[in-house]
Design a protein around this nucleic acid. Structure first.
Length: 456
RNA sequence: GUGGUUGUAGCUCAGCUGGUUAGAGCGUCGGUUUGUGGUACCGAAAGUCGCCGGUUCGAACCCGGUCUUCCACCCCA
């Protein structure tokens, strides 16, 4: 055998069973999106580099897949950068396009570009692959699908309420019960930073706070101190580390911490509105949980921040995330356009469903009936019947070769084909069909009309 | 990007401190007399031991590099 071919790091092939399972998730999400009034759009898999670069922070820029220019791309390069081997300066000269890194920034570009054709508020969903030059791990790929729903052009907090409901609806429909929808608000984080005198260190502060459940209270304090946050401020955080109780109790605690911060108080108000809405409307299987340490999220979030964690006991990074960004389109020149949205990580959801064995057994993409091949004349009779079955929306096929029946049955078995039809010498003479149910082994010899109704 | 880890037939894995023709189970293919599968029995094919280089009389095994896998950072879906 020759050298085995392979695919790039962090990419995968999907076999028919995989595709069937993924399609099941896609269609569940898609139908929920549409039920909530979202409309689909699609954008190109690659954008101009200038559209993407600088939108995800320094880290993000590094993870964007750049596309090499065509032609003699080195001829345009400034000798200085070339000879210095200065990659970051050289890149813009040799790469003008890049694969999309997420669906939100291309969406912002889309909104600005098509602002005159769009009726606001605009609710769109988008299900497409994205690419990141990340180092792969489990549940972490270089090519994966995001399923995004966003609304632009409305400041209403009802949108946030709806997104919580949407998460609940999708995961309930997928049978993935017990997910936790964590919610926080960027304004609360800013407020806390303000109160402890670290407003200029918001990022450092949130990054440290985010690690609370991972490295513990002491280490978090150490890190904050190391980043130059005053001890007096850290002391004020004490109540934060011991936040407990239900949503209401935590909010009360927060209020006392954030008394002096206008922004913080606003964040709390928003949070309370969302929680009140969800309490009144109810969730089917998910839980909404306030998580003040939830600080992840891209630089552009300005209000609510969401993240969805798989049910307890499943080791997997977040399976969804999102939030409110007041000025996303601002970077492309369209001001005062608030957006809020969420994303589902299809690939991780698939892994979780697989692990918990939650895929319905009925997910298959096999044909319903296979005709055994007994020879040329029998084959012709079979093909005629198959034609009629297909016209009746029944998937059917003829085993192409006249092999031993044992082999043909084996094949049908392995492909999980539920029914087999035999058209041999006697059936040919009588103009009948022997239909066998592979699961029960029962078989009967019937006419074409009966065959059709039996398989419908 | 940093540190670690993995890689042997299609799949899951054995292979003792380097020693002669690298094994098993499952799967695949063929057969158990030619119209009936998922069971049983018999038989066969299939591996430049991830790739490149080095050490050695000799390497799947030791060393270096590289790719891949997974893990921890980082970041995220």
């Amino acid at each position: 055998m020759a050298q085995k071919p392979s695919i790039p790091k962090g990419t995968r092939d999907f076999n028919p069973q995989d595709v069937a399972k993924r399609n099941y998730i896609f269609s569940t999400i898609r139908s929920a999106f549409e039920t909530f009034g979202f409309q689909p759009i699609e954008t190109p898999s690659f954008e101009n580099s200038s559209t993407l670069m600088g939108k995800y922070g320094e880290e993000g820029d590094r993870l964007i897949f750049k596309i090499l220019n065509s032609g003699d791309y080195l001829s345009k390069v400034d000798n200085k950068y070339y000879l210095d081997k200065n990659s970051s300066m050289l890149t813009p000269y040799i790469s003008e396009k890049a694969l999309r890194y997420d669906l939100t920034v291309p969406f912002a570009r889309y909104v600005v570009q098509h602002q005159n054709e769009i009726d606001f508020p605009f609710k769109r969903y988008q299900i497409q692959p994205v690419w990141r030059a990340d180092r792969p791990q489990k549940g972490r790929f270089r090519e994966f699908y995001q399923c995004d729903a966003d609304v632009v052009g409305s400041n209403s907090l009802w949108q946030e309420v709806e997104f919580v409901q949407l998460y609940d609806a999708v995961f309930t429909a997928l049978g993935l019960h017990g997910v936790t929808i964590k919610i926080n608000n960027r304004k609360i984080l800013s407020g806390i930073a303000e109160v402890i005198g670290a407003q200029d260190k918001l990022i450092d502060f949130t990054v440290a706070l985010d690690k609370l459940d991972k490295i513990g209270e002491e280490k978090v304090k150490e890190e904050m101190l190391g980043k130059g946050i005053p001890q007096s401020g850290i002391d004020k955080l004490q109540p934060l580390f011991s936040l407990s109780g239900d949503f209401g109790a935590q909010v009360t605690e927060l209020k006392s911490i954030l008394e002096t911060s206008e922004e913080g108080r606003q964040g709390i108000e928003e949070l309370e509105f969302i929680n009140k809405g969800i309490e009144a409307l109810g969730l089917k299987t998910a839980t909404l949980q306030l998580d003040v340490t939830l600080a992840r999220g891209l630089n552009y979030y300005t209000g609510a921040i969401f993240e969805v964690a798989a049910p307890e006991g499943v080791k997997m990074g977040s399976i969804g995330g999102g939030g409110r960004y007041d000025d996303l389109t601002g970077i492309f020149g369209l001001k005062d356009m608030s957006g809020v949205g969420i994303s589902f990580g299809l690939d991780r959801i698939a892994l979780v469903l697989e692990q918990l064995n939650l895929f319905p057994e009925t997910i298959t993409n096999t044909v319903k009936v296979m005709f055994i091949n007994f020879g040329e004349a029998e084959g012709m009779a079979s093909m005629k019947a198959i034609k009629v079955l297909r016209e009746n929306d029944i998937s059917a096929e003829l085993f192409p070769d006249k092999k031993k029946t044992v082999k043909q049955f084996n094949y049908a078995n392995k492909r999980n084909i539920p029914f087999v039809v035999l058209v041999g010498e006697s059936e040919l003479a009588d103009n009948t069909y022997t239909l066998k149910n592979m699961a029960s082994s029962a078989q009967e010899t019937i006419t074409l009309d009966t065959l059709i109704s039996a398989l419908k």
